[in-house]
Design a protein around this nucleic acid. Sequence first.
DNA 1: ATAATTGTTTAGGCTCACCTAATATATTTT
DNA 2: AAAATATATTAGGTGAGCCTAAACAATTAT
Lengths: 218, 218
Amino acid sequence: MLTRSEEDHIKAVYALLQEGESAFTKDIAERLRTKASSVTDMLKKLSGKNLLKHEPYYGAKLTSKGRAIALQLVRRHRLWETFLVERLGFGWDEVHEVAEQMEHVANDKLIDKLDEYLGHPHFDPHGDPIPDKHGKLRTRKTKRLNTCKPGESVRIAAVSETTDGLLRLLDAKGLRIGTTLSVQDVHAFDGSMDIKPQRGSAFSLSKDVSHHLQVENA
Amino acid sequence: MLTRSEEDHIKAVYALLQEGESAFTKDIAERLRTKASSVTDMLKKLSGKNLLKHEPYYGAKLTSKGRAIALQLVRRHRLWETFLVERLGFGWDEVHEVAEQMEHVANDKLIDKLDEYLGHPHFDPHGDPIPDKHGKLRTRKTKRLNTCKPGESVRIAAVSETTDGLLRLLDAKGLRIGTTLSVQDVHAFDGSMDIKPQRGSAFSLSKDVSHHLQVENA
DNA sequence: ATAATTGTTTAGGCTCACCTAATATATTTT
DNA sequence: AAAATATATTAGGTGAGCCTAAACAATTAT
């Protein structure tokens, strides 16, 4: 049985490894709004429990045991988010905080039943894949919108969930999961991009935004 | 913002005050599976936050602020129990532990939406009343089955939720919330009672059981 | 009324998860 | 290559929430 803090650290390491090569102390601390020295302590502790490998000064990697736990947490988080949006009628920009708390409720039967109740969804409201009972993730070939070239036609598959200002911005522009759009122009100067949704008129997106949109070929 | 432990203590005090006159250190400790000295510490702390009055050696009483918090927790707990049974298909004997965890998820909007989703229920799966948003409880005139006399005809309104062996026993005997039954005989020797459900044949219940059944006139 | 028992509080200690400050290592700049 | 900078670890400290043991208060039995 893990404490909440242990779970949070494992999830942070998992998330950072998803984003890049390694999970560094500093980045973990930033994500958890804590200090690097606290993270070092916890990495040692988790290392002792065989949930991750901590090479001092070179970051952390999860063991398979640790990864299984992280996937379990991600599963819980995304199932609850799905519940909150689809059943309780929350906006997709409001659910992260709440799910962050709910994911720590530890009861396997609960999650199995919730999964069933929701119809075994494969993706959450932000388009992120929900690991199944065994930690298996459905993968898609997606790329970030900012890497697309003028002329490409793509569908929005997922949005990085961490920033809720972003979600409100997308709402305001009428962009959501499943929206199809074509890239009209990319401006080298600032990386901004002119896009045209399938229905609706063209407008431009900053690189900050396009970078957080995962798209797949339409 | 209260910690989980603070919330647990307030709920324990509330529950004990419901059952009897006073909430004593020892009983709180027992309920929380902790030690009396730890409870004393916490009572001091909560006293300082004006959530309860602690008369040393004479137990604790909640202030109105403390009672409001307790009712809030009871509301969360019973709404989640209702969700677990009615939506996820849990048995009524399986939900206490899980709800014990879920009740600590703090988000008012979540509880309001859950309440709405469930259709603003007034009673939980064990027949216990669910406080509304403002902490108001629907009251009924119930009595314990063991206080009934032969010849009385009553309906089961609620079952003390704390003992899950009891709930399984009731399941096995076909007794549930809403079941109507008549009292046939009461044996002075052991306080056991012969009852006959409206449909089905008569059998007897120990005082241990009848004492935990809240009934109302049929 | 005194003694024994039961329950409560106080005193002092422990662990967990954090912190700051100091030190060590790695990386980047000059 | 040396110096400056960024990041990580170690050392030592703090508060929360628990603990045990001892002192204290109230209740019950003799």
